[in-house]
Amino acid sequence: MITTARTLTITWIALIVATVAAFVLCEMGTDVGRWAIWAAMLIAALKAGVVLHVFMELHEGTIAWKLAFGVWLSFCTVLIAGLYYFTT
């Protein structure tokens, strides 16, 4: 599957919306509850996944590269969200 300019632009808009959504969520502060830590990091992980697959075209890579970056992405997400959630 070849990436098209249209796909890239739709992806860019989605990334912008997700970024602003995470900012608004976190700006609400403690009012929203601690679940927002996981929500914000889930948004970050989804954005990172989209950048990897669409912009970096990891979808064209081998299963080994996809697996390696999947491990990296999951590790960073769980590490940051988990340690914030359990140590704040």
């Binding site: 976190c26 601690r34 830590i37 970050a44 990172a48 950048v51």
Partner: peptide
């Protein structure tokens, strides 16, 4: 060069919530 540039973006997508956003919650 494009892939390297996207990595700069990719890393920031984790640094930003870790340092700036999550401490607000």
């Amino acid at each position: 060069v494009g892939i390297f540039w996207h990595m700069v973006d990719l890393l920031w997508l984790f640094i930003y919530p870790m340092l700036y956003l999550l401490p607000l919650i």
